[in-house]
Amino acid sequence: MKICVLVKEVPDAAVEKRINPQTGRLDRSGEKNLNPYDTHAIEAAMQIKEGGAVQVDEIVAVTMGPESATRALHKAVSLGADRSIQLTDDALAGSDVQATGYALATVLQKESPDLVLLGQQSDDGECYTIGAIVADHLQMPSLTQVIKMDVNDSALRCERQAEYGYDTVEIDLPAVISVGDAINEPRYPSLKAIMGAKKKPLEKMGSGDAGIDGSRVGADGSMVQCGNFKAPPSKSAGEIIEDEDTNETVERIVAWLDERKLI
């Protein structure tokens, strides 16, 4: 079985300011990292490989992103992927989610994976949708937010929480699954794995190499135009108590609640 894991480079969560107050635009500078939700997808692939229920021949990390995204692939490899693919091309800049999903699906098609795994969301885009888009382009069944997955050679048994409680769904392979962050506790990479990550095969390709139709990607090929960023209606900031002396903190909380007749 071959598993492809989609991973993305995102701004580090510790970088606090994500919008530039001067320009009102997205601030894309600062530290970048592997999308933390994707580490659950890599871990899920590793657990299938190590679980022994099926034979996993290869785990391939795939990303679409700028030059710097190579580091996210190195991280993915240090966490267990055997090799990686980076789709990178200026022509892809400005792609909306649909165009991104199309481009990724085109790369995946060549790999003909038995299973495609994704994270539940990207930490910056928070679209929750790439999985379902990729699945439709690949003509594969799919499910998102999966928190338990049992694998055999031809099918998966998945559990996830939906509108009315927990659903259990059986899905034939090949399939596209996005995993929720409750599915596992991702491991930390060993020092050896970190050192070795750069030596594992990394294939870079442009959109032409991947067979992507240039008219369907990039800002011009995208069907949504986003813009006019504006500030949300301001909500008066709440009161903040820094807990230094807990007895005093608790007194203040009780007084606050009492004032509002909540006790």
């Binding site: 909306d96 989610v97 649909q98 999903g101 199309y102 928070e126 679209c127 929750y128 949708t129 790439i130 999985g131 379902a132 888009i133 990729v134 699945a135 439709d136 382009h137 799919s142 499910l143 998102t144 937010q145 929480q161 939906a162 509108e163 369907r216 995208s222 069907m223 949504v224 135009q225």
Partner: peptide, 22 residues
């Protein structure tokens, strides 16, 4: 909801449409 995300995304792919969530 959850299904709306999945259906909307699949539909965007199928119809090459623009999609916005949340």
């Amino acid at each position: 909801g959850l299904l709306g995300f999945e259906i909307g995304a699949g539909l965007a792919a199928r119809l090459n449409a623009g999609v916005t969530m949340e």
